[in-house]
Amino acid sequence: MSQSYNRGRIEDFGRWREFSAGMWAWIFHKFTGWVLIGYLFTHIAVLSTALTAANADPSTIAAHNDVYTQTIRALESLLVVRILEVGLLAVAVFHILNGIRLLLVDLGIGLEAQDRSFYASLVLTGVIAVASVPTFLAGVTF
């Protein structure tokens, strides 16, 4: 209740130690959601270079010298971008796995296991992120 008496230390985030699985799942889901919507806007902005590129000379495009290809290549050559991409994958995978968990909860399936399925989502996310590292870092120029 917004008008309620402020009891300082008792308020929500100060209690993070006491959060249970379902609460963490909610927080992570929300956080990854924010990241993904932010990325969606950025992603479209970057892809928009294709608009300029489309007007370029066909030979430029054939030689991969168009703005779009150059932008993507420049970005992909950066290690930090590659690392961020692994992070993005982890974020997306968690959001997907926990999303599946939430869909099951909505269908009333496995509610007793809701904490375990959250932990499973976390572990699986970690495994997939680590496993993707070789692919994601392939061909990066240092």
């Binding site: 249970s20 699985a21 379902g22 609460m23 799942a25 909610w26 939430l102 909860v105 909505d106 009333g108 509610l111 809701q114 904490d115």
Partner: peptide, 19 residues
């Protein structure tokens, strides 16, 4: 309801509230 299950966890009568 955001299915955080916190209500279900604290219910002293073990009511599956989220469910």
């Amino acid at each position: 309801c955001q299915t955080q299950f916190s209500c279900t966890e604290v219910c002293p009568k073990d009511i599956p509230l989220t469910e």
